[in-house]
Design a protein around this nucleic acid. Sequence first.
DNA 1: AACCCGATCAACCGCAGTTAG
DNA 2: GCTAACTGCGGTTGATCGGGT
Length: 311
Amino acid sequence: MGRQPCCDKVGLKKGPWTAEEDQKLISFILGNGQCCWRAVPKLAGLLRCGKSCRLRWTNYLRPDLKRGLLSDAEEKLVIDLHAQLGNRWSKIASQLPGRTDNEIKNHWNTHIKKKLKKMGLDPLTHKPLPPPPPPEHQQSPPPAGVSPEPRPPSPSEEKAAPTPEPADSDLGGDGELLLSKSPGFCTDEVPMLHPDEIMVPPTPLPASTCGSTGGGAAAAVSTPTTSYSTSASSSSCLTRDEDSPFAFMDMDLPEFVFQFQTGLDDMDARWRDCLMQPLPPSPAPPTPAAYEDPFDSYLLQRNGGALFSSY
DNA sequence: AACCCGATCAACCGCAGTTAG
DNA sequence: GCTAACTGCGGTTGATCGGGT
């Protein structure tokens, strides 16, 4: 006999996560570290399967995530990596600190694919597309031995796309990626997280500073998922990329960021404490004025008016 | 104002490899 | 060594949003 089932699928919740669920998950992981996802839902009091918890954490709640559109450099890197790795999104994501495989996959499918096609490149092979066939009323079958290109590949074809096998040797040798030695955080090598390893967001700056610092990394954090529109007012001058309080991890740090370093430990404790607080029975939406404390203000801005994101 | 449609992205599904019993 | 659960990955789906008509 093997192990116990990871989760009995009966009675488990599906669909978008609520703020309360997020808080429970964050609190649990902050308090206990990241381990055995199977046990997480039970211990955290969530009616989710461990898989769902892991996904939510790695794709959305993880504090080191850099949100927002990929920069040009990142996009170039993704294209470069895809040319060598194919659809190995997790491998590609591991070369882009703060990005998830899901995010890159989505970006590829929604942006990069189109760009490459516009440029006349096959997104699968990264080679020039054959010229489009002259328009015909009825497409006649291609001659024997001739591939009816171009056409969108079926999923199975895409899966079997000519992925240059990098021999999975960490791209060493000739196939070594110049950019693969980035010392950044690897998303598919997520270390065990402990509360004191969680980066703490710096105090937000007033909205008036947006754009003037060139960073504004902490000015506001949208909580996407089901609610990224809710924080529009507080983050209107920022891109989502800039929204993340953790976005500075691999960026040129705006000077003001360093001003917060000294108080970081204290903030860490408060971040944790705040997250560990049980939700009030019926949280009254606080008014912005009620949060004169920078940290509370951060939470307020992050979630567009609530300590935790409104859904 | 209402509707349509394309774009976006969080979340789910299912598979494969790994590992515990 | 076998079986079944666990974990991670890639593909796909569906809800939501915003722009156009």
